[in-house]
Amino acid sequence: MIPTQRSSSPVNRLRSEMDELFNGVFGNFFQQPTRTRSSDPALDIFENADGYRVEVAVPGLSLDELDVSVAENTMTIRGERQGEETRGGTYLRRERRRTGFQRAVMLPKTVNPDGIEASLENGILTICIPRAEAAKPRQIEVRVTQAVESAPVSETPTDES
């Protein structure tokens, strides 16, 4: 059977129900952050088993010049150059950002804000946001009760049997 409308396909319907479940009940996805100014540094968000990783391009800034703070469910990243770069000469062209910046990211409810760690390498600020213990993905063990023996089916079968 070929569905005439995408929305009517059972898979899509299921997917949309799943999205509603995730967004509505758990609220565990990042809201898309907004880049209000084109001069704002680029920001990426990745998700993995440990939690989320936010990366911000901050060339030329040191860790002292960066600040990451969390209030309520919003993480704010600020950067400000301490003291103007003093270089002799005349600027023929000046394109690099000179002003400070601020980016805000709404955190999902499923993270542990106390475990946030930041590091800086090659002008990329990396902020690791761990998942709250209760929200970590885990395999739910399914026990199958049989007449002779019971074994968790979640284990990989071995040749020993």
Binding site: A42, D44, I45, E47, A49, I124
Partner: peptide, 15 residues
């Protein structure tokens, strides 16, 4: 340099 690994799922990209 590519910084995401195979287990990373992209949620938002501006870079």
């Amino acid at each position: 340099a590519e910084r995401s690994t195979e287990t990373d799922q992209l949620r938002h990209r501006e870079s």
